[in-house]
């Protein structure tokens, strides 16, 4: 899918550059774009690594586990069928708490473990799997560390001042996703 979009964008830019006589600028811009990526990545690297370090410390301090335990009552309501199985509930809470803390690399394996278990529970389980996917496609992260790092490397006066806006916007989108899921679940059988 992304490949198709990429191909279309590339072909049409080439066409447009040729038709509007911007071929030489376009040729120079491709190389300049690729060159600027390394500088940008180097600028970003320090902040990203510091966040990764802080999150690793949080993980080793047991924050994920504590958060996971606190989330269980909520998950029992959202996933009544799957949460009857103890290992599934554990995978679900691990997935959600890693998502909240922004530990993407820990969230995905736990989520996949949950997804596999849910697929084995019949139609009710598969319906809850769809809900899990909808939850995972909405951003649940409490601290948008990557974009804050990008902002700080590109000269923001206060990289974190967008946090309240990000939290409100993700909350609204999670609610919209849950609402749409509940609604569509009823009509789409």
């Amino acid at each position: 899918m992304f490949n198709i979009v990429l191909l279309i964008l590339l072909l049409f830019s080439l066409l447009n550059a040729l038709l509007t006589g911007r071929a030489s600028e376009a040729g120079a811009a491709v190389l300049e774009g690729a060159r600027s990526a390394t500088g940008f990545a180097l600028e970003l690297c320090g902040a990203l690594c510091l966040w990764s370090a802080i999150l690793e410390l949080a993980e080793r301090c047991g924050l994920t586990k504590r958060l996971a335990a606190a989330l269980r009552p909520l998950l029992r309501r959202l996933f009544p069928c799957s949460s009857r199985e103890a290992p599934l509930l554990e995978a679900l809470s691990e997935n959600l708490s890693a998502n909240l803390l922004g530990l993407g690399s820990a969230a995905t394996p736990a989520g996949i473990r949950a997804a596999r278990g849910m697929a084995g529970l019949g139609e009710a389980g598969v319906d809850e799997l769809r809900l899990l996917v909808v939850l995972n496609t909405a951003s649940l992260q409490l601290l948008p560390t990557t974009i804050a790092s990008v902002r700080s490397s590109l000269g923001a006066s206060s990289p974190f001042d967008i946090v309240p806006a990000v939290l409100l916007s993700s909350l609204l989108s999670v609610l919209a996703g849950l609402g749409a899921a509940k609604l569509l679940q009823r009509v789409w059988r």
Binding site: V30, G33, A34, F40
Partner: peptide
């Protein structure tokens, strides 16, 4: 990924398509 995508976006911008 950034290297490839920065090049693509620069092309999009410079070609006037964007």
């Amino acid at each position: 990924a950034l290297t490839v995508l920065f090049a693509v976006i620069a092309l999009l911008r410079a070609s006037g398509l964007l």
